[in-house]
């Protein structure tokens, strides 16, 4: 199986007052296409920081991140925007849906940024929402009229909008009860199996981590495969 993601000796340092804090300290990892990978670790271990680096939300202090054969640490800001638009999809712990847009409009948003025509993006958003279990009667609801599980499924649909190669999920079940958490997990798991989409999920839930193809553990900024 070919690797879609290769992280080599990545460091991320923050300055807090007079002190330098190494959130990620020389981490390296590889993820294959269609693989479901989890990153575990205690709170403050640097999991979310690493996920942000993989999603080009921030630049690493050193090291390289190759995604689909391209080192994203060398890309300009403009190219990084395109990378985020085309290659990755994000699922956040707090769902992060735009509150005054409906579920459908939220899913259409990444497609609008990618320049997809309105008719096409409406049709695709409806399909995606149906595929995650949000039927037509709920597609025009605003996030505050939906349950946490529903919001997270909308968030997954939004992440899939531009057919990304990688889905990066930050504690996707963290705010959900076990039933809804399982649904979202199954959804992400299904993506890897049915669409060969690579999923990297950050979690502190060892049950979930145990069900993924590969698990990395992050401790004090250093990563190890379990």
């Amino acid at each position: 199986m070919s690797s879609v993601l290769k992280v080599s000796d990545v460091c991320k340092t923050f300055t807090q007052g007079d002190q330098e804090v190494k959130a990620v300290d020389g981490s390296s990892m590889t993820v294959d296409k269609g693989e479901f990978v989890s990153i575990t670790g205690k709170s403050g271990s640097g999991k979310s920081t690493l996920l942000g680096l993989l999603g080009a939300l921030d630049y690493p202090t050193s090291g390289s991140i190759d995604i689909d054969g391209q080192d994203i640490t060398k890309l300009s800001e403009r190219k990084l925007t395109n990378y985020r638009r085309q290659k990755v999809g994000f699922v956040f712990q707090n769902y992060n849906l735009v509150p005054n847009l409906s579920a459908l409009e939220n899913v259409m948003l990444p497609m609008e940024f990618a320049g997809t025509p309105k008719k096409e993006r409406t049709k695709k958003a409806e399909e995606l929402l149906r595929s995650v279990g949000i039927e037509a009667d709920k597609q025009h609801r605003r996030p505050n009229k939906m349950s946490g599980g529903e919001q997270q499924r909308v968030s997954v649909a939004r992440a899939l909008a531009n057919n990304p190669k990688i889905i990066l999920a930050d504690e996707p079940t963290g705010n959900l009860d076990s039933e809804n958490g399982q649904k979202v997990f199954d959804l992400l798991h299904g993506l890897t199996r049915n669409h060969e989409t690579t999923v990297v999920v950050v979690t502190h839930d060892l049950d979930i981590a145990g069900k993924t193809d590969r698990t990395y553990n992050l401790k004090d900024g250093k990563i190890k495969q379990r």
Partner: peptide, 16 residues
């Protein structure tokens, strides 16, 4: 702030 961050994360340009 966070909403702007999310929009950037899902591919919105600064100009947009």
């Amino acid at each position: 702030r966070r909403e702007i961050g999310v929009m950037k994360a899902i591919g919105a340009s600064k100009a947009t």
